[in-house]
Design a protein around this nucleic acid. Structure first.
Length: 435
RNA sequence: GCCGGGGUGGUGUAGCCUGGUCAGCACAGGGGACUGUGGAUCCCCUAGCCCGGGUUCAAAUCCCGGCCCCGGCCCCA
């Protein structure tokens, strides 16, 4: 019986890997420029860690199992919990802020569908130890610049706020604030009528429905919509939070990223551990892909894990969401996998083969991507193979040349051949390749 | 967890409705024609009905269950 891949997982072939690596490297460079440093935690943790954060129900979304020692283990569903654990266990007294990033695979036990796998990759950062709006701005600016670094320009970073959503629920006298947020989060999937009906079914009065409709109207350029928020909200707590948002967009302007920033108070981003600012990136596309990443402030999580109360903020970029969009827009450069030179020994003679290896090794040491014939093909087939690979130059090593200390360089495009001294082959090829 | 559509050599597919011919074709891979000169041509070879059960004289084909893929729902920390 054939052994298949595990459900929801993928094999990445060389072409795909080259593209993925290109994207990772663009993002990594920006992270580094912002002086975030890379960390990597174990692929699996005690299931308890994730339960602490999100409650018992998350277990059914986790790739959870008992190991041979009877430990209750889960593959990480994201990096935030692990990073918080790491911080609590060893970095509570480290100089603040701590700026960490990661590029790693995550696992969730869910039904695979478009853009959703059981193993997927995220590139993200966590900034621990500052509750200031400056920290939010730094993180959101980096979030924005990460997408820009991949060449993506047609996207927005939409900012919402959990404090305002909480205050809003209080204002309406709603007890099930999570239920309300869940509903508000779904607004874009429903028509206006369906949405209103859902709100009424939820138990809102006509006035309440009106207020929700005003809330989701608070969406767009910050200078246009923040004044509307000031009108809608009355509590002191809400007012203070709105002032914070004003400061935030002001700082983001200083970062030079305001062009991509929008306010959208209807964003909830799940309902687990975010405490204040939340944000997500959306890039218009025909692929049915929604959010391509998101994050927010989580000031309570570290104490949940047994640390001193410590503010933190961060984001994660979903690579499986981003890459299809970049490809769809043609932003990922074609990466050629072919070698620049292919060395073919003519015949089975061991000395010839050794000379071929010496030549290819010299080329490789000189920085040329070079390959050597390994299958024992005859010359005709070997040239055929080189032609299919689109290799620009072939070095032929045969008895006839070698008797005079020569090898032959063949230009595969023109078919021209030159006999050169064996010692000169590297120099000649470097020149021909323009290296 | 639920719903819909699928699963035939490495890849793409024909055949399935209406059961019965060696499961056909193309590309890819290996070898040869052609032992030092490429992409051509010809020949040969490798390699397949997702798994299990049922119906039947006979199953790729019909039925049931499972697994997996594609998409949607739930959920999305």
């Amino acid at each position: 019986m054939k052994v298949e891949r595990v459900k929801g997982t993928r094999d990445f072939l060389p072409e795909e890997m080259a593209k993925r690596r290109w994207v990772f490297e663009r993002i990594r460079e920006v992270f580094e420029r912002y002086n975030f440093h890379e960390v990597l935690t174990p692929t699996f943790e005690y299931t308890e860690l994730f339960k602490l954060r999100s409650g018992e129900e998350v277990v059914k979304q986790l790739y959870a199992f008992l190991d041979k020692g009877g430990r209750d283990i889960s593959l990480r569903p994201d990096m935030t919990s692990s990073v918080a654990r790491l911080y609590v266990s060893a970095f509570q007294t480290a100089p603040k802020p701590i700026k960490w990033y990661y590029i790693a695979n995550m696992f969730r036990y869910e039904e695979p569908q478009s853009g959703r796998y059981r193993e997927f990759w995220q590139a993200g950062v966590e900034l621990i130890g500052s509750d200031k709006v400056e920290a939010d701005a730094e993180v959101i600016a980096l979030f924005t610049e990460s997408y820009l670094a991949t060449g993506l320009e047609d996207f927005t970073v939409n900012i919402g706020d959990r404090v305002l959503l909480d205050e809003f629920a209080k204002m309406l006298g709603v007890k099930d604030d999570i239920g309300l947020m869940r509903l508000i989060d779904k607004k874009d999937k429903l028509t206006q009528e369906e949405f209103v009906k859902a709100l009424k079914d939820f138990g809102l009065s006509d006035e309440g429905v009106e207020k929700v409709l005003s809330l989701i109207e608070i969406k767009g350029e910050s200078n246009e919509v923040l004044p509307k928020a000031e009108e809608l909200f009355t509590s002191e707590k809400a007012k203070a939070e709105i002032r914070r948002l004003y400061e935030l967009v002001d700082l983001l302007d200083a970062y030079g990223v305001s062009k991509w920033i929008r306010i959208d108070l209807g964003i909830a981003r799940g309902f687990d551990y975010y405490t204040s600012v939340v944000f997500e990136a959306i890039a218009p596309n025909d692929l049915g892909i929604g959010s391509i990443g998101g994050g927010g402030r989580y000031d309570n999580l570290i104490e949940v894990f047994g640390g001193k109360p410590t503010p933190a903020t961060g984001f994660a970029i979903g690579i499986e969401r981003l890459i299809p969009i970049l490809e769809w827009k043609g932003l990922i450069p074609e990466i050629r996998l072919r070698p620049d030179v292919y060395v073919i020994p003519i015949g089975k003679d061991v000395e010839l083969r050794k000379t071929a290896i010496e030549v290819v090794s010299a080329l490789r040491r000189a920085g040329v991507k070079a390959d050597v014939e390994l299958t024992g093909r005859k010359l005709r087939k070997a040239l055929d193979h080189a032609g299919r690979l689109n290799v620009p130059y072939v070095v032929l090593i045969g008895k006839r040349d070698l008797e005079n200390g020569n090898v032959t360089i063949r230009d595969m495009e023109t078919g021209e051949q030159r006999v050169v001294k064996k010692e000169d082959v590297v120099k000649e090829l470097l020149e021909a390749l323009g290296l």
